[in-house]
Amino acid sequence: MPVRRGHVAPQNTFLDTIIRKFEGQSRKFIIANARVENCAVIYCNDGFCELCGYSRAEVMQRPCTCDFLHGPRTQRRAAAQIAQALLGAEERKVEIAFYRKDGSCFLCLVDVVPVKNEDGAVIMFILNFEVVMEKDMVGSPAHDTNHRGPPTSWLAPGRAKTFRLKLPALLALTARESSVRSGGAGGAGAPGAVVVDVDLTPAAPSSESLALDEVTAMDNHVAGLGPAEERRALVGPGSPPRSAPGQLPSPRAHSLNPDASGSSCSLARTRSRESCASVRRASSADDIEAMRAGVLPPPPRHASTGAMHPLRSGLLNSTSDSDLVRYRTISKIPQITLNFVDLKGDPFLASPTSDREIIAPKIKERTHNVTEKVTQVLSLGADVLPEYKLQAPRIHRWTILHYSPFKAVWDWLILLLVIYTAVFTPYSAAFLLKETEEGPPATECGYACQPLAVVDLIVDIMFIVDILINFRTTYVNANEEVVSHPGRIAVHYFKGWFLIDMVAAIPFDLLI
Rank of each mutant, 00 (worst) to 15 (best):
G184V: 10
S284N: 07
I96H: 01
T337W: 14
S278K: 12
F340E: 15
A285T: 12
E90A: 14
T305W: 07
L212N: 09
T375E: 06
P227S: 15
P241L: 12
P141A: 12
G120F: 07
N317S: 07
L380Q: 04
K93M: 09
F348C: 08
H143R: 14
R281A: 15
H7Y: 06
R20I: 01
S275K: 05
C49K: 03
D323P: 09
R73P: 01
V279M: 09
W154T: 11
E37W: 05
D199N: 05
S206L: 09
G192S: 05
C49D: 01
V195C: 03
V59Y: 01
L210S: 10
S182G: 13
E130Q: 15
H254T: 14
A285S: 04
Y327K: 07
S354Q: 14
F348M: 11
N33H: 07
V370D: 07
I330F: 12
A89V: 13
E37F: 10
L86V: 08
D286I: 14
R328P: 12
G53N: 01
A193V: 06
V180F: 15
S261M: 10
F14A: 11
A293W: 13
A89L: 08
I96C: 06
P297N: 04
V94P: 01
L155K: 09
H70V: 07
A83L: 12
V384E: 04
P386K: 03
P361T: 12
T216V: 05
E58T: 01
L296D: 07
D259P: 05
I336Q: 14
P205G: 14
C64P: 14
E91K: 08
K364R: 14
G149M: 06
V113M: 15
R5V: 09
P245M: 14
N45T: 06
P361Y: 01
V131G: 11
I19F: 03
G314P: 07
V377D: 03
A185T: 09
C39W: 15
G183L: 09
F29I: 01
L86N: 01
R20M: 07
R280H: 06
L311E: 05
V132S: 12
F348K: 14
T162D: 15
V115D: 01
L316I: 14
Y99S: 03
E91F: 09
P202K: 07
S263D: 07
I288Y: 15
R328F: 03
V3P: 07
K21F: 04
L69M: 13
A204W: 11
P141V: 14
E118K: 04
H368C: 13
K373G: 04
N128I: 09
D136N: 13
R164H: 08
L109P: 01
A293H: 07
M60K: 01
A156M: 06
F22C: 07
N33K: 04
S322M: 07
Y327H: 06
P251A: 10
S331P: 09
T17H: 08
T13W: 14
R148C: 15
H254I: 13
V215S: 15
S55G: 09
S239C: 08
C276W: 05
Q247V: 15
H309F: 14
G246K: 04
R76W: 05
N369E: 06
A228Q: 03
K116M: 13
L256M: 05
Y43V: 01
D219M: 05
S255K: 15
R292D: 03
S263H: 06
R280S: 15
K166A: 06
R326L: 05
P168S: 15
L200V: 12
A290L: 03
I358Q: 08
K101C: 01
R356S: 11
G53S: 01
A228W: 06
S351V: 05
L316D: 15
T13R: 13
G262E: 07
S243L: 09
P10G: 13
A142C: 15
D286Q: 14
R56Y: 03
W154R: 05
P352I: 06
S322P: 14
K28C: 14
A79V: 13
L338S: 14
C66I: 08
K135G: 10
I30E: 01
D46C: 01
G226H: 13
Y99Q: 01
P150Y: 07
S239I: 07
P114L: 01
N38E: 14
R273D: 14
P114K: 05
F68E: 01
D67L: 07
A34K: 06
S153G: 09
E91Y: 15
L256R: 12
L311Q: 05
L87M: 10
C52G: 01
F125G: 11
H254R: 05
R56F: 01
G294V: 09
P114E: 01
G314C: 10
V131N: 06
L170F: 11
G381L: 04
V122E: 06
E177W: 10
H7T: 05
D199W: 01
S140H: 06
S304Q: 15
P151C: 11
I31D: 01
A293T: 05
M137N: 15
R252E: 15
A260H: 15
P72I: 01
P227I: 09
L109N: 15
S261K: 04
V222R: 05
P10I: 09
Q25I: 07
I31F: 03
R356M: 05
P347R: 11
A9E: 12
S283E: 15
G184N: 14
F348N: 04
F98C: 05
S318W: 15
M133N: 06
P258Y: 09
E177N: 13
E95Y: 05
H70F: 13
G149V: 14
R159T: 11
G103S: 15
K362M: 08
V59L: 10
L256A: 07
A172N: 08
E50L: 12
G381F: 04
D346G: 11
F129R: 01
S278N: 08
P205I: 06
I359N: 06
H368D: 05
N128D: 14
A142E: 14
K101F: 01
T145P: 13
V295M: 08
Q335R: 08
S153M: 04
V131T: 15
D111R: 07
T216E: 10
C64D: 01
E50Y: 08
G294I: 08
R4Y: 12
A290T: 15
L343H: 15
N257I: 07
A80S: 13
T270H: 06
A211R: 11
K101S: 04
G71D: 01
Q61D: 09
R242Q: 13
S266C: 07
A9V: 12
I30P: 01
S178Q: 11
K161V: 01
C49H: 01
A217T: 06
R5T: 09
